[in-house]
Simulated scan of single mutants.
Amino acid sequence: MRTTSSAQTKDPVSGWIEDNFNQGKVVNQRAMGSSGWSSAYCYETDQGAKYFVKLARGRDAGMFKGEALGLQAMYATQTLRIPNAYHCGELSSVPGGRGLGGSGSFIIMEYLNFGGTFKQEELGRQLAEMHMAKPHFEEAREGRFGFPVDNTIGGTPQPNPWTASGGTAAWVAFFKEHRLQHMLQLAGDARLTALGNTLCANLEQLFDGVEVTPSVLHGDLWSGNVSAVDGQPAIYDPAVYFGHAEAEFGMSWCAGFSDSFYRAYHSVLPKAKGFEARKTLYKLYHYLNHYVLFGSGYYSQCLSSLTELTRTMR
């Protein structure tokens, strides 16, 4: 990986770091990879401080704002290791920002040295503690579901309007409209939509006797977004909102959670009646998203989940 000296090329992200942290001058920006829409770097100062930076050229700061607020909401629980988000903004709003290659946006966050292993039971216990923590935002403390901003699940828009009230009925209405119906509309398949309409018309049955309160959710918890820092479990790259804690297991089909993980999780947050059926429901949301993103390879999972869930409806 090529290292560039900030003494040779001064950029506005370096300037923001130097102006807002008493950690000396930025001397290196080391490339750390890229995704389909952003590039990642490690910015290092002459005092040895490191910061993790993402740049997205040609995009506004909307996606980074959702990521920053989500990281901050999880970080505030002081449970799992979460990279804290320090700042995000438009490159054009920073003097010299367009010198990084045109318009775009950036986010600056805590640099964590990911690597090694962690205990599955620690991940389960600490995740349950995160779900039980006092919410970071006033709306969620009032019992409402949603998030201050819309964000994305993968590359798919994820609407998060705050519900007007709390309680299980409010959560069911939120999940019905802003998760299932939203994703079914994007999928645009008549057979899936017909089954989905039946499911939505009877969704309350899956929550009979269950009291749902807002938990901060990572929202996209699979093995690629879990790592270790100093032997402790860490999670990142979220799609955060406040919802039913069980919805966190929607990506469990590719998360690699062990039996010890679930035992530890439910020792803190006991399993409620109907957990397995709702787990199928929450997996359905992510199967639908993968169908929207990646196509027909995920159609059978969507169809079988909808068929299984609607078969139980009275």
Rank of each mutant, 00 (worst) to 15 (best):
M1H: 10
R2L: 14
A7M: 10
K10H: 01
W16Y: 14
I17K: 08
E18V: 12
N22D: 15
N22S: 13
Q23H: 13
G24C: 02
R30L: 14
R30K: 10
A31P: 14
G33M: 08
S35K: 04
A40P: 07
T45Q: 03
D46R: 08
Q47T: 15
G48A: 07
K50L: 10
F52G: 11
F52M: 07
R57N: 03
D60F: 05
K65H: 03
A68C: 13
L71D: 03
Q72I: 03
Q72P: 00
A73K: 01
Y75A: 03
T77F: 02
L80S: 03
Y86A: 03
L91K: 07
L91Y: 06
L91V: 04
S92D: 12
V94D: 05
P95D: 15
G97A: 14
R98S: 15
I108K: 05
E110F: 05
N113K: 10
F114D: 01
F114W: 11
F114A: 12
G115R: 09
F118A: 00
M130N: 01
H131V: 02
P135A: 04
H136C: 04
E138A: 06
E139W: 00
F147H: 05
T163D: 03
S165M: 07
G166I: 01
G167I: 08
A170N: 05
A170V: 03
V172Y: 04
K176C: 12
Q185R: 14
D189V: 06
L199K: 07
E204V: 08
F207T: 11
T213P: 01
W222A: 01
N225T: 06
V226E: 00
V226N: 01
V229N: 05
D230E: 15
Q232I: 03
I235M: 10
D237H: 12
G243P: 05
G243I: 08
E248G: 11
S252V: 04
G256W: 07
F257C: 08
D259Q: 15
A272P: 03
K273I: 04
K273H: 06
G274M: 09
F275K: 01
T280M: 02
L281A: 05
Y282T: 00
L284A: 08
Y287E: 09
Y287P: 12
L293R: 14
S296Y: 13
S296E: 15
Y299D: 06
S300G: 09
S300I: 11
Q301D: 15
L303R: 12
L306M: 00
E308W: 02
L309A: 09
T312V: 05
M313K: 07
